[in-house]
Design a protein around this nucleic acid. Structure first.
Lengths: 239, 239
DNA sequence: TGGGTCTTATTTGTATTATTAATACTATTG
DNA sequence: CAATAGTATTAATAATACAAATAAGACCCA
């Protein structure tokens, strides 16, 4: 196999990352460095650097004489956006989507609550801007969903907590990948828009509990929808 | 400077990680690969591999002719336990502690709630075991706190959500580092123990809302303590 | 003078080769 | 049979050379 030009190491990281997450390597054992280098027709140096990057992300480990092994999932840095993308691309299933939604349910109400307490005027304006883009009728599907993503990101940013801020890319990556598979024809509905407005109003008013509750309500609704789909799927599998 | 033998790359990753987080590199600019290699008396190959690992963790970026630069904090993988350790060791301040507690407040009640729904019998037993070690009077300070950490970890594990499970090392690292700075003479108090018991009982009974609330209550108490200390600190700084 | 283009120097990126270190496996020997 | 020494495999490190990218300045021309 060959990979395109420009940053061979980065390319290989991506190729191997995807391959690992697709379960391409049986028994969690990768080929030796030399074999990988040969397979992708690049030097062992570049190969080793790619291996090191994947090691840093917790995906693999390598020891002399033992070779390169895939680590247990509990070591994977799932909050690394690369890893997350590979996971979601590798197994785009409803269960993983629910797991992810459960994290959002933990994160986003908390972030909204913190935003209600700490957001600066600029940060409030940022949230409001993406909210207005969400409403704008003439915009296309992609723009609307980018505005949706920006809305969530700006709330995380406004939390003024570096951990939540770091989760911006986490949420963005997951939302984008999920759109691949749950793409709906309609744009954001009026009801959804109203919920976003409610969240914003609570944040602007400094109502921490209200921001928490309204944000939780929105996410919970999505979760119940996914749970229904999972339940339906399981009924089909049983028969 | 020199670094000890055995896994030079790993050692260098750690040295550079700590140095970066201590703000050792002014203007966010690191020396060139060649200079770093010279400084630590290792080859450029090993240096590059260390650089790649730090790049994978989002700490730095490197481009030809431009050199190696420290990335903006929003790119750091704060949920990587290495990065987290460097952050906490680099700036052991109360503000970062509060930020971390705010994340715990988001994570742990949610995990407890999921555990109440999904925990298997084995996972329940695991939680109970660490709880019993927490109570055992004869155990020393370190053992008690390890049991405390294990209690929180076993709840995360019992959530059966890979994202929360991944946060086990996150919580463990942060709790251990924080103990360095907030070390109290007393062990876990009777009241704290009782709160842990309450959380466990809710999980065992499958009471999702109860597990959420009791877990949140415990963390909120700690947060208010830290907030008081911060407020006191700010009063001192003003005068 | 202003602005675009070319050259050059610097730094990372990649390749190649060799040597060392760690370790699983094997054979030897008491 | 068991402890030990040997052997083979693979990653770890090193040294070196060259390629590619690019920032900065030189240069040219309208």
């Amino acid at each position: 196999m060959e990979i395109s030009h420009r940053n061979l190491t980065q390319q290989l990281v991506h190729e191997l990352g995807k391959a690992i997450l697709q379960g391409k390597y049986s028994e969690n054992k990768l080929p030796s460095e030399a074999d990988i280098a040969k397979e992708y027709d690049i030097s062992r140096t570049a190969t080793r650097e790619a291996i090191k990057m994947l090691t840093a992300k917790g995906l693999i480990s390598s020891r002399p004489r033992q070779g390169i092994k895939v680590q247990d999932i509990k070591h994977w840095n799932l909050f690394d956006s690369d890893v997350l993308r590979w996971v979601l691309l590798g197994k785009p299933d409803l269960y993983m989507l629910r797991h992810f939604l459960d994290v959002r349910l933990a994160i986003e109400p908390a972030a909204a609550s913190l935003a209600a307490r700490y957001a600066s005027d600029d940060e409030i304006i940022k949230i409001e801007t993406s909210l207005s883009k969400l409403k704008f009728e003439g915009s296309g599907y992609d723009d609307t969903h980018q505005a949706d993503i920006d809305f969530h990101k700006s709330i995380l940013f406004a939390s003024n907590n570096p951990f939540f801020i770091q989760l911006q890319t986490f949420v963005e990556t997951a939302l984008k990948v999920n759109l691949h598979f749950t793409k709906r024809a309609d744009a954001v509905s009026e009801k959804e828009y109203q919920e976003h407005v409610d969240i914003f109003n609570c944040i602007k008013a400094g109502d921490e509990q209200g921001a928490f509750d309204t944000a939780a309500k929105t996410t919970k609704l999505t979760i119940s929808l996914v749970n229904e789909r999972i339940a339906a799927l399981e009924r089909i599998n049983k028969t």
